[in-house]
């Protein structure tokens, strides 16, 4: 059954991979240009309005961007891959159950294979595919830099991968719930996009800022302090397990 799941998601995974590789290639090629552009942006930092200063972030970042390893970790793993991670996970998770329900093929599976087997095979195959995609894309950053002739190391890549693996788990199991609950393929996507868009807005309110996991996905604490945010990691991991449990129970009780 895992083969069937992989077969069905192969095109999505390949297309996502190729698009992200194109982005990575551009980022490596634009390395000299990107740094000079950043220096230009920060040149009159003291004169620009405070709101814009907050948007641009710490000017010390520009100095650090001179380091090839820091450049690729912050700009690729952090900014680009990190920002797209929720969408990548959504694209893999939303059809897991919703497509089978929508097309009526779920009857083929459920009449022949017990629910728990169907659930675990479908959920874990998609989960590990998402993980593999994110980990491989993360690690390809420094590799592409070296191919481009830069002196980049994996440096903090592995620490950010820890953040990203936990983020994948949390988001994947959340989107799995949408895929189970809805009987068509449109609603899980719309709901998933709404969640992804709502996260940054939550950070506008201090009390809700913990909902915005973008800084965590992008490895903000690792880039600033060099350390994994273990407290948040544990909380998010527990939430991911809770969501997995809820999705299993929902699937167990769902009528088709």
């Amino acid at each position: 059954m895992r083969y069937k799941e992989l077969y069905e998601m192969r095109m999505r995974v390949i297309v996502i991979f190729l698009i992200m590789i194109a982005g990575l290639t551009f980022l490596v090629a634009a390395r000299p240009l990107a740094v000079s552009m950043m220096e230009e942006m920060y040149r009159d930092f003291d004169q620009i309005p405070e709101a814009l200063q907050r948007l641009l972030g710490d000017p010390a970042m520009v100095q650090r961007l001179g380091d090839d390893s820091f450049y690729i970790v912050s700009q690729w793993q952090g900014n680009n891959l990190g920002q797209f991670l929720p969408i990548i996970v959504l694209l893999i998770a939303f059809p897991i159950f919703a497509r089978e329900t929508d097309k009526g093929t779920i009857f083929f599976l459920l009449s022949r294979i017990n629910r728990s087997t169907v659930f675990w095979n479908k959920v874990l195959t998609g989960f590990f595919a998402s993980l593999a995609l994110i980990i491989v894309l993360s690690l390809l950053g420094p590799v592409f830099m070296r191919i481009g002739g830069y002196d980049a190391t994996f440096g903090e890549s592995f620490a950010i991968i820890v953040h990203q693996v936990i983020s994948v788990a949390l988001l994947y199991f959340l989107f799995t719930i949408f895929s189970i609950v809805f009987n068509d393929q449109i609603k899980p996507v719309i709901t998933g996009i709404a969640v992804v868009l709502a996260m940054p807005f939550a950070s506008l309110v201090d009390a809700l800022s913990f909902i915005n996991i973008y800084p965590y996905i992008m490895g903000e604490s690792i880039i600033n302090t060099g350390r994994i945010d273990w407290t948040y990691s544990v909380v998010l991991s527990l939430m991911a397990v809770g969501l997995l449990f809820v999705s299993y129970k929902l699937f167990e009780k769902k009528e088709f």
């Binding site: 069937k4 069905e8 097309k103 009526g104 093929t105 009857f107 083929f108 009449s111 022949r112 017990n114």
Partner: peptide
């Protein structure tokens, strides 16, 4: 759940994996 492999089912909607 103990005898699923002994049962074959054709549903009302004959939807199979059409790709």
């Amino acid at each position: 759940s103990d005898v699923r492999l002994k049962v074959s089912f054709v549903p009302e909607e004959k939807s199979f994996y059409d790709s």
